[in-house]
Structures are given as structure tokens and as C-alpha cells.
């Protein structure tokens, strides 16, 4: 029995608590996807076509540099979302995202989502509020990480 994709969207924290028609609207742009361990959901430089709502499994946000094991910038898990570069031109991914284990996610088509947001500003505003909240949270966390509070004290 296939579940209604709108229900799956509504279950995800990014969209939970919003009116059901919002979840259905997003569901109309979505499909259920699976990514095998070690495979890339996002590839730096490639067109950013989807927002991924993670339901199962963890994803590492990485940057590759020749001569190094990929540098892990962040780890994103179930209930979180991956991929923001679809929101603004030039719509290209800035980082790689790799499945650390089998990943189950809802893939929301970006062009579809942007079109719906443009056509329905009320929906667009709700979407932006939710996304901005997540981004602010991430930015604060990243700023604190930059402080390198566990680093050795260096006396000059």
C-alpha cells in the first residue's frame, strides 16, 4: 500500500504543523527516494534541482580537495533537510552530500517548489519562514564551531 506523499511531507519537521493543503502542495512536487551508502545526493557544481527531506539515515556534507580524504563539514540526519542552493540562482550545489548509510528521503523538485511559491505568496512566505529558521540555527551553530573552543591556547 503506497503512502500518500503529502502525509510523508506533513510528518517531516520542516513542514509539520502547517495546514494540510500546504503539505499536499509540497507533496505535488515530491517523490520518495532511496540512496545507497556511499553515494552522493548532491555534487558540488552540479545543478541544484531538489530539496531533500531526510526520513532515514545520515548524510555527510563534504568538500573534496585533491590529496585529502573528503573534509566533512556537517552531518545531517532524519528529520532534517539537505540542500538549499536550489533557492537562488545560479542553482548549483556548493558542496557534496554523501549517504553515510542507506538513506530514505523525500525529494522535492525545486523548480516545482519555486513555481508554487511564486504563484502563492502566502505559501511562499510560510516556506521561507520555516527554511530561514533552520538556516539561522545552522549559522549560529557554525559560528560557535569556528570559535574552536577546544583548541590549544596559543600565546603570542
Amino acid at each position: 500500500m503506497t503512502e500518500n506523499i503529502g502525509d510523508l511531507v506533513a510528518e517531516h519537521p520542516l513542514f509539520s504543523g502547517l495546514p494540510t493543503d500546504v503539505a499536499e502542495l509540497v507533496g505535488g512536487c515530491s517523490q520518495n527516494v532511496a540512496i545507497a551508502t556511499g553515494q552522493l545526493l548532491l555534487e558540488e557544481g552540479e545543478p541544484a534541482r531538489s530539496l531533500y527531506l531526510l526520513r532515514r539515515g545520515h548524510v555527510a556534507l563534504e568538500v573534496h580537495e585533491p590529496g585529502r580524504v573528503p573534509l566533512v563539514i556537517d552531518r545531517i540526519g532524519p528529520g532534517q533537510a539537505v540542500g538549499w542552493s536550489w533557492m537562488f540562482p545560479p542553482y548549483r550545489w556548493h558542496f557534496d552530500a554523501r549517504a553515510l548509510e542507506p538513506v530514505g528521503a523525500i525529494s522535492v523538485d525545486a523548480e516545482c517548489l519555486r513555481a508554487k511559491a511564486e504563484a502563492d505568496p502566502a505559501f511562499g512566505y510560510l516556506l521561507m519562514k520555516r527554511i530561514a529558521a533552520v538556516m539561522l540555527d545552522r549559522l549560529q551553530a557554525t559560528r560557535v564551531r569556528l570559535l574552536d573552543v577546544y583548541g590549544r591556547d596559543v600565546t603570542h
Partner: peptide, 12 residues
């Protein structure tokens, strides 16, 4: 190309 993303997903 190696298949990265398969639609249909899982049901969990």
C-alpha cells in the same frame, strides 16, 4: 552511470 538516487524509496 552508477545509480545514485532510486525513486520509490522505502516505506519505513
Amino acid at each position: 552511470v552508477p545509480v545514485h538516487i532510486e525513486s520509490g524509496g522505502d516505506r519505513s
